[in-house]
Structures are given as structure tokens and as C-alpha cells.
């Protein structure tokens, strides 16, 4: 689903955020990206979402080469990816239902005709009873679950999450991860950036470790003897 082939990203001014990154995420695969802040986790997710363009290498997402994608094709590309943000990015001038319905609206679906899908997504994250509430009236964990419902309502094949448990206590974090695991089981690929080592270790999924823009460890393909690590 996602293939990084010697991808690098250099910002104007010479700072190299990612260098020579190569790995692949298959269908139904769950992978963590970890590393210190500034290691390049967010940049990596931005590349996948098409918010930034790679300055070198080849990045294929959903069968599309993102180096050559046009600005006109980008919206369509993003519609096929569910994204969960650390700070939820919910809109407080509309209720929970309308927040979750936003991606349907954007991809040209009729939210009224597709209420069932919004309700199913809310049901999935256990918030079916709160669809009429404003996001700000919900707890942090609930808001994040609304964010997840919004990310999955369009049945994307890829879900990206940037520090989805950044502001949550361990118990809620485990809950969120359990939710993600459900989607993995129906064939969705998940790429989750997190620096919560304890949580990552407790789950035992594939983990990609970044350090200063370089991939220094991939738990699926452990470095062979004699290399740097």
C-alpha cells in the first residue's frame, strides 16, 4: 500500500528531514513510526498525505507515485486516506455527527443519504449516543474517538495517525490502539507515529525507528550483523 524507495526530504535551507528512506507497508499491516521529536515522524506522514513532496526517491501510495502527482489529483488522493491528528482537528461549530460526516460530504456523497455510514462509524468508536453533542463538550479520549470515526467513515484503505494518544492516559491510549487493531483486521493499513515506547512495546506490532531523518531500525527486517546497529 505504501512503498518508500530511497525517499529523502530536504527543506529549503538545506535541512534534511528524511534521508534515503526505504520500507514498505502491505495491506492490513500495522506499523508504528517512532523516534525522538524532530526525527522526521511528522514529515514522513506529511509525505504520505501529499502535504509535502519528496525531494528524492520514489514514494508510491495506493498505487500512485506521489512525486508526480498534480495539485488537482491531490484531493482525490487524500480522500482515500483516513487521517487522525494529535489535536483531533474537530470543528466545534458543528456537532459530532456532522464532524464525522465531513469526509463524505467532501467526496461528493450525500450525508443525509449516508447517515447509516456515519452512525456505523460512531458506533464503532462507541459514541453513537453522543452524535448531537459539540466536540468541545466531550472528553479528550472521546474527541480522539470522534477523530477516528471521521477517519474511517469513508472506508479508506490506509489510516495515518500522528501521535493519536499524545494527550491521553495509558488506559485510554490502549483503548484507541485496540480500535486501530480492529481496522487492521479488515485489511486497512495503518501507519501510526508515536513516541510512547511503553505502548508500542506492549503491542508488539512492526516498529520503524527514525533518528535524524534516517531509518535506524525496522523490527520486521532486523539489521544484519555487521551493520551500524
Amino acid at each position: 500500500m505504501i512503498t518508500f524507495d530511497r525517499v529523502s526530504k530536504r527543506y529549503p535551507g538545506g535541512q534534511e528531514a528524511l534521508s534515503n528512506l526505504s520500507f514498505g507497508i502491505g495491506q492490513g499491516e500495522f506499523a508504528f513510526i517512532t523516534g525522538h521529536s524532530g526525527a522526521g515522524k511528522s514529515t514522513l506522514l506529511k509525505l504520505v498525505l501529499g502535504l509535502e513532496k519528496p525531494s528524492g526517491g520514489k514514494l508510491i501510495v495506493n498505487g500512485r507515485d506521489l512525486a508526480s502527482i498534480t495539485a488537482r489529483e491531490l484531493p482525490n488522493h487524500r480522500q482515500q486516506i483516513g487521517t487522525v491528528f494529535q489535536d483531533h482537528q474537530l470543528l466545534d461549530d458543528r456537532n459530532v455527527f456532522d464532524n464525522v460526516a465531513l469526509p463524505l460530504e467532501i467526496s461528493g456523497l450525500d450525508p443525509r443519504e449516508n447517515q447509516r455510514r456515519v452512525r456505523a462509524a460512531l458506533d464503532r468508536v462507541g459514541l453513537a449516543a453522543k452524535e448531537k453533542m459539540r466536540p468541545s463538550a466531550l472528553s479528550g479520549g472521546e474527541q480522539q474517538r470522534v477523530g477516528i470515526a471521521r477517519a474511517v467513515v469513508n472506508t479508506p484503505r490506509i489510516i495515518l495517525a500522528d501521535e493519536p494518544t499524545g494527550n491521553l492516559d495509558p488506559e485510554l491510549s490502549a483503548e484507541i490502539m485496540a480500535l486501530f487493531a480492529q481496522f487492521m483486521s479488515v485489511g486497512v493499513s495503518l501507519l501510526v507515529a508515536s513516541h510512547d515506547r511503553a505502548l508500542i512495546d506492549s503491542l508488539g506490532y512492526r516498529t520503524l525507528t527514525l533518528d535524524q531523518g534516517k531509518l535506524i531500525r525496522d523490527s520486521k527486517n532486523p539489521p544484519e550483523a555487521g551493520s551500524d546497529e
Binding site: P75, D110, R157
Partner: peptide, 26 residues
């Protein structure tokens, strides 16, 4: 553009059964 998007068949199976909004309604 939006017109292209409305006409393009969606890659996702789940979307196929969903009711699309007409341009006028949108």
C-alpha cells in the same frame, strides 16, 4: 476538478453502494 471526481468510479468497494449527491443538490 469536481466534475471529474463525481464521474470517476471509486476504487473502494464500500463506496460503490453509497448514494452520491447530485450536482444540483450539492
Amino acid at each position: 476538478m469536481s466534475s471529474a471526481r463525481y464521474n470517476k468510479p471509486s476504487a473502494s468497494n464500500a463506496r460503490r453502494g453509497s448514494k452520491r449527491i447530485t450536482r444540483v443538490a450539492a
